[in-house]
Design a protein around this nucleic acid. Structure first.
Lengths: 143, 143
DNA sequence: CTTGCTGCAAACAGTTTGCAGAACT
DNA sequence: AGTTCTGCAAACTGTTTGCAGCAAG
């Protein structure tokens, strides 16, 4: 499935007349190897570790491309940094965010999704995406 | 109910040993007179209009107090600014955000809230707040 | 009088951008 | 060769902070 994403990106790149570069390959690889919710800084450091000389600006620019290509999605948490998560084909998950230790638990709920569709329909709204974040204290932080 | 909020803030202020100042009164008034999702900049301009000489920093600082006092809540949309919305006692609403015209439609759904509680409980999570945003195109933008 | 609050300007953090040179096609 | 992409550093934007003076208690 990592392969699939690379293909997706290549197709996107081709359709947009974008070039395939060493940096973009590296950044895509690192992004795919990463867990949820990477910040640009984190990604940049990982990239630099194995490949010094890649600039931060390139990471920013490339992540934007991933978003455009539908591989990544911006997640705004409350830590001052824009974070990026993987977009899995079809699948969608929401987040329980612990305000104590910043842990993020993911979950999926079919019924909630359906209710959202209903609500949207009722308002003549065409859903493109959504975001549900529940803030609170996780099992170990609530003491 | 505006009165109630002022009282809430005064109680909060008293309990924290905070002072009651002209600026805080002004900013609270303007905030309460405002519609949903004000940015600091917007609020600052409104305040300055009727009351020049109030600094932006004070608006920032005061809004943080409102959040602490439970009168306001931060909303992170995708426009690069932190926005603040009113916290209505007990009530909670979520958002349909139109990516075409930036309109925001609010809604409430009891069932979704309940499902969230269930999910949280299942994960040993203690909910403090949550945020649900649905992005897409509104009736007039979807063409 | 004492301490907290304000306004200003400077400092910051995250992100974007201009540009000269490097790299892809 | 013709462009696009990259790295660097400078520029920007939103937000925070230090400090001297002001104001509330």
């Amino acid at each position: 499935m990592i392969h699939e994403k690379k293909r997706t990106f290549n197709e996107f790149a081709a359709s947009k007349g974008l070039r395939s570069t060493r940096q973009r390959d590296i950044i895509l690889d690192v992004f795919l190897s990463t867990h949820q919710h990477v910040s640009v800084e984190e990604l940049y450091l990982k990239v630099k570790a194995s490949n010094p000389g890649v600039g931060q600006a390139t990471v920013y620019r490339t992540l934007k491309l991933f978003v455009e290509a539908g591989l990544a999605r911006e997640v705004l948490l409350h830590d001052g940094q824009t974070r990026f998560e993987h977009v899995m084909a079809g699948e969608h998950h929401d987040h329980l965010v612990c305000t104590g230790c910043n842990a993020i638990i993911e979950f999926e709920n079919e019924t909630i999704e359906k209710l959202q569709d209903e609500i949207a329909t009722r308002h003549g709204f065409k859903i493109r995406s959504h975001k549900l974040e529940i803030y609170g204290l996780c099992a170990s932080c609530k003491g």
